[in-house]
Design a binder for these strands. Structure first.
Length: 766
DNA sequence: TTGTGATGACTTTTT
DNA sequence: GTCATCACAA
């Protein structure tokens, strides 16, 4: 089992049962270490398959883990707690829904459902204020939950903040009434359940003797707390991650979890996997040199014995169209030389950049495949059917009610629905519960819809799930509606695909022949219960089934796994995707495009704390995708937002040492002046220059400005400063400019550190 | 209920 | 340039 592993990998796999952190660089065999560790733990008898808990971020990663594990060991992986944070929390909440304060058939809202629920809430609350756009409210609620905060925990320093907390509370109340939870709630509820209910917590703490976490750098505050709570005092956590590949801060990921875990739990038990099995020398050296510009790192240097390989090629074109054309010509040449197209990837920072590339590829008839399109369970026709199914499972799901009450149209207009919503508010019921209170013709059409749902629910007691879905498609009128629509053919095919997906799900989960709404005696998802202390937990610690019908289980599945989002599979095609989407993948030849200031690094990112460092990590991820051949391209002008913009060469190009670069087109002299659209940067400088106080960290590090460095403005060598954590010190060196400015500071007690002025909170001592 | 034109936003994304 | 949203007319 251990053969073929290098010494560091072996050390990681065979670590003793204590908290440990594995810093796994790109291409260092991370997944292999993780799965081998699991297999090793089981094989050496340290833990049974059911004493393991392994958590990932994506379903794909979880599946991969299980597949590899079964290849290593002849065990049945069914029922093992290997899954995503959300999947595992769902499992916990289903098993203990009563203690968690949830209805048995609670539904899960995806982001789109959540947004429409929020819009409904805002309407009901009479909020018609542009200071509270639904998207902002959604972001606020989600980020609060990611930090483990309830409405009462939010700061209420001003009326706006109090208002937001109030909206969060109203949203919670609405979810409660409707029996739905959003993604964040899944985690927070599960966390609170474990925290509050000692018997349940202790049971799971006893049960899980080993916890393993993948992509630890992507965990948010709440996920980290959830893990440590579940670990309790005795269960070791084996965390694998790479702080240099942390690219999801914008959705709540907190890289700080790694440093915290190391310092508080895994001190002295950090293993670095630095041997890279993917890329050749120039590529790795370029990546190392680039990422060294980041100040806050745990530190790591990749190396390879695969040889130097080729330097990175750099190509500059006059426009985005010419950049795309160059890519197409180059790729055709590669394919002609015998490179398989699917081993070639074109990466870009933002989705909008795919357009000219697609255009050029299409015109040249080069087969390509774009990642990140719409996903199966997010298609509107699929969501419509799912809404009917949810109403069958839980008629109080107002989000679903609103979605399909008039789709296909059955003469129920906005006026009627408003009336219904008013009655529901008055009676304190769901929309379904308010039907009887709506008078007249409007009430009659609502009643007809309610009857339809009731009848379908009745069918669900005899038909199996695929049959039920076919039945719903027909009797809801969706079938006729799409048949009448000229472009409805594809949609009908997708609905047939949904029936097939349900059939596959039913077979997979052992629900064959069972009526869709029937709760089976031996449920698919085994949870277990604390040893016989409480009758609610069942039978003395034996795995007890989670009460879920095929319908309920399928709806959870549809929410938690949105399905494939890859376009035309199969064909040998060039791969087009964002850098984010490329994480975890590798290709023989990689093209990183649009290396221009404002695009990569993206101008918006410079507004965020640590934004530039995250962009640099993104570039690091992009570079390390390539095995043998890496090409960086840029365009002098680019169509963006309907305007032609002229960008400067990305600073990332200048951060890679010349010896690793080979300019294919002549290297242009950098233009002195910033293009007009970077005016925001200049404004930023004024902002914080004018700020009185003594904090020299700009409110936002958007301080890029032609020819002026932060150091010249505000710091001089020899300046005395104070830092929150490191204490007092003296500036000994300055480097970089603008948002990238760094100061080397000799602290009296904490040693010498290099800090990014855009990030570090420094106070100047007079 | 449905269609039209004006308006404004526009990085990345899994669950 | 493109897409979503929204107010208002037919």
């Amino acid at each position: 089992m251990l053969e073929g592993l290098n010494p560091q990998q072996q050390a990681a796999v065979t670590l003793p049962a204590e908290h440990a952190l594995v810093l796994a660089g790109a291409g260092s065999g991370k997944t292999r270490v993780l799965t081998t560790r699991m297999a090793w733990l089981i094989q050496t008898g340290q833990v049974g398959p059911h004493g393991l808990l392994a958590v990932t971020f994506t379903n794909k990663a979880a599946r991969e883990m299980l597949t590899r594990l079964s290849a290593l060991l002849p065990i049945n992986t069914r029922g093992m707690w290997v899954g995503t944070f959300h999947g595992l929390c769902n499992r916990l909440l289903r098993a203990h829904h009563r203690e968690a304060g949830l209805p048995q058939a609670f539904q899960i809202l995806d982001s789109a459902d959540q947004l429409s629920a929020i819009k409904r809430m805002l309407k009901a609350a009479g909020i018609d204020d542009e200071r509270f756009p639904p998207r902002d409210v959604q972001r606020m609620i989600n980020s609060a939950k990611e930090d483990g905060l309830r409405p009462g925990d939010l700061d209420a320093r001003d009326s706006h903040a109090r208002r937001l907390a109030d909206l969060y509370q109203r949203y919670q109340d609405q979810c409660e009434r409707e029996g739905v939870v959003d993604f964040g709630e899944l985690l927070l509820r599960a966390y609170e359940l474990l925290q509050r209910e000692a018997p349940i917590r202790e049971h799971y703490q006893r049960r899980f003797q080993q916890i393993l976490v993948d992509e630890f750098q992507d965990t948010n505050v709440l996920q980290y707390r959830w893990l440590m709570l579940l670990a309790g005092a005795h269960t070791p956590v084996f965390a694998v991650g790479d702080d240099d590949q942390s690219i999801y801060a914008f959705r709540g990921a907190n890289v700080g979890n790694m440093a915290d875990f190391e310092q508080r739990h895994a001190r002295g038990r950090v293993i670095r996997l630095e041997q890279n099995y993917r890329s050749q020398g120039h590529i790795l050296d370029a990546a190392n040199a680039l990422i060294a510009h980041n100040a806050n790192r745990l530190g790591k240097n990749l190396w390879t014995d695969a040889g130097e390989g080729e330097p990175l090629r750099v190509v500059e074109q006059a426009s985005d169209a010419l950049e795309a054309q160059w890519l197409v010509d180059e790729i055709r040449a590669l394919v002609r030389e015998g490179h398989p197209a699917h081993e070639i990837a074109i990466l870009y920072r933002s989705n909008a950049q795919s357009r000219p590339i697609e255009h050029a590829m299409f015109s040249a008839r080069v087969p390509y495949r774009v990642y990140g399109g719409q996903r199966f369970f997010e298609r509107q026709e699929v969501k419509h059917v799912l809404a009917y199914l949810r109403l069958i499972d839980n008629p109080n799901d107002d989000t679903s009610w609103m979605r399909v009450v008039n789709f296909p149209t059955r003469g129920i207009g906005a006026r009627t629905l408003e009336q219904q919503a008013d009655m529901a508010a008055q009676q304190g019921t769901s929309l379904a519960g308010a039907v009887a209170f709506v008078p007249g013709k409007a009430g009659a059409s609502l009643a007809r819809f309610a009857t339809l749902i009731r009848e379908l629910a009745e069918e669900a007691r005899t038909l199996d799930l695929p049959e039920l879905i076919g039945h719903v498609v027909h009797h809801s009128g969706l079938e006729a509606h799409y048949r009448a629509d000229r472009e409805g053919q594809d949609r009908l095919e997708n609905l047939q695909e949904l029936v097939n997906a349900a059939a596959a799900f039913v077979a997979e989960e052992g629900f064959q022949g069972l009526p869709a709404a029937r709760i089976p005696e031996t449920a698919a998802i085994a949870a277990d219960a604390p040893a016989g202390t409480d009758p609610a937990f069942g039978d003395g610690g034996q795995p007890s089934p989670v009460v879920m019908s095929p319908l309920g289980a399928f709806l959870s599945h549809a929410s938690l796994e949105a399905g494939d989002n890859q376009a035309q599979a199969g064909e040998d095609a060039v791969q087009l995707m964002t850098v984010h989407a490329a994480k975890g993948l590798e290709f023989d030849a990689v093209f990183i495009t649009g290396l221009e200031e404002g695009l990569f690094p993206h101008e918006n990112s410079l507004l965020d704390q640590g934004g530039l460092e995250e962009e640099r990590r993104l570039m690091y991820v992009a570079i390390t995708r390539a095995r043998r051949r890496l090409t960086l391209t840029l365009a002098q002008s680019r169509m963006l937002h309907g305007q032609t913009r002229y960008g400067m060469r990305s600073r990332f190009l200048d951060e890679i040492p010349e010896e690793h670069l080979k300019w294919i087109t002549p290297r242009q002299r950098q233009v002195a002046a910033r293009p007009p659209w970077s005016g925001a940067f200049r404004r930023g400088l004024g902002d914080w220059q004018g700020e009185a106080g003594s904090s020299f960290a700009p409110r936002s590090p958007r301080t890029q400005s032609a020819g002026v460095t932060v150091g010249e403005q505000c710091f001089r060598i020899g300046t005395g400063v104070r830092h929150g954590r490191f204490g007092e010190g003296t500036v000994v060196a300055l480097s970089g400019s603008g948002a990238d400015a760094q100061a080397r500071i000799e602290f009296r007690d904490a040693g010498t550190k290099t800090l990014a002025l855009g990030v570090a909170k420094l106070e100047v001592l007079d």
